[in-house]
Design a protein around this nucleic acid. Structure first.
Lengths: 230, 230
DNA sequence: GTGTCCAACTTGTCCTATAAGCTGATGACA
DNA sequence: TGTCATCAGCTTATAGGACAAGTTGGACAC
């Protein structure tokens, strides 16, 4: 997998001789691995729509727009700045989806779901000193609301939210104050759901996400100051 | 890849001995392929989050909710009924996303984009006898509007819309009347965009998608009548 | 009953050999 | 000179055998 990571980063940076992907033999020579490993690497890249391989022809790099950016594997291989961009793009999507989903959930929410959400908030306020564990419960909270839609593609999007989140947290740590305000946001959402108030849930979710977005932008600023572009 | 397809279908149908995934040797014996092919298969399944492989341990099947349903590969391997379900779930997402995106596009659309959209409509009305070519242009029309968001994850979602579309068209062919009404829908969207009217574009897109949804549901009905569940 | 150790199983990697598909250049022919 | 067929050399596809390294569960000693 390390070979796949290196190769992906090389492709992203545009560092390929005349834009063509390396062949199996190129890879095995360049990375000092056997042809078997080189083959497996190319097959994995192909399954993520990064390259196309077909017998007889050389490997072809696919349009960057068609890569599988929701794949945790790919996210792990991408350079930090692109992960940051993807996080913002994901945020834009969530901003369109989650407020509506919260409204939908409010209409027919069960007591079981409400209990799990309440429980999540309790655990979050206890975990504000541990960003990793906090974000895990945070993610579960959002998943619980999205579960109302019973939608596998939505699940996939939310699943990758967690990965993008952890990948970006590897770069800059979360501030404790941010986590405290997030707990307050979640409580507001919860209360609107308890009241079975779709409009209130939609508004509370929107507020929460846009608070997140602000924090994200500030963090991006700090990162850029810390490591300015060359 | 055929091995991966068979294996995926077996996993989906729950036809695994005590729920455990087959090992490399199991696969090479069962499908009569070499261990190399079996390994590559498992690596591909792993990259789509269908299984987890780690040295020494057996291969583990991952939770179905975390599979990469936006992958064209996986979609091709899934049984027809699940593709139908995924198409409806994708539709639900598009219903939440695309009207807003159309509204966003209307605000700052360029003449170049408008020309491409106009051109798309012309080609669609000429292609109503050829569903495959029609759907290709249809897809491009929607992509053009979504491009305003400049969002790679959204691109990925729309990209998979085309694949799910073609996969489901393999099952039941599109009716010409449906294509004609779709062209009319697209024209309405286009006119709202020309007028730089966000609310109008949002409404037109919503009407178009919900028309599609109706057709989808009717088609689902016909399919079920043609091949009732056992 | 408990803890340690080892054998069997599993994945990870390598090497070599052969089949089969594609591309471009060479050369025959008109 | 132009056109087309052929083929050499590249590529990927698959096979089989060998060894390394990690995991697991059961046998065995205490």
């Amino acid at each position: 997998m390390q070979v796949a990571a290196h190769l992906t980063r090389r492709i992203v940076s545009g560092d390929l001789d005349d834009g063509r992907a390396p062949s199996e033999l190129d890879i095995s020579r360049e990375f000092g691995v056997s042809r078997v490993v080189a083959r497996e690497t190319l097959k994995i890249l192909a399954s993520l729509d990064i390259v196309t391989v077909s017998q007889g022809r050389r490997v072809v790099v696919r349009p960057v727009a068609e890569w599988d950016y929701l794949s945790p594997l790919l996210v792990e291989w991408l350079p930090a700045e692109i992960v940051g961009e993807l996080l913002q793009e994901l945020h834009q999507l969530r901003m369109l989806l989650e407020p509506e989903l919260a409204a939908m959930a409010a209409a027919g929410i069960t007591d079981g779901t409400l209990n799990r959400l309440r429980d999540g908030i309790d655990r979050m306020s206890a975990l504000e000193a541990d960003p990793d564990a906090y974000l895990e419960v945070d993610h579960e909270f959002h998943m619980e609301i999205c579960r109302a839609a019973d939608n596998r593609i939505l699940d996939r999007i939310m699943y990758s939210a967690r990965w993008l989140g952890t990948a970006s947290r590897r770069i800059t740590n979360e501030a404790p104050a941010a986590l405290r305000s997030a707990t307050a946001d979640h409580t507001e959402i919860y209360e609107a759901l308890v009241a079975r108030d779709p409009a209130g849930a939609r508004a509370a979710m929107r507020r929460h996400l846009s608070n997140n977005s602000t924090l994200l932008a500030e963090r991006e600023q700090r990162t850029k100051r810390a490591a300015p572009p060359r």
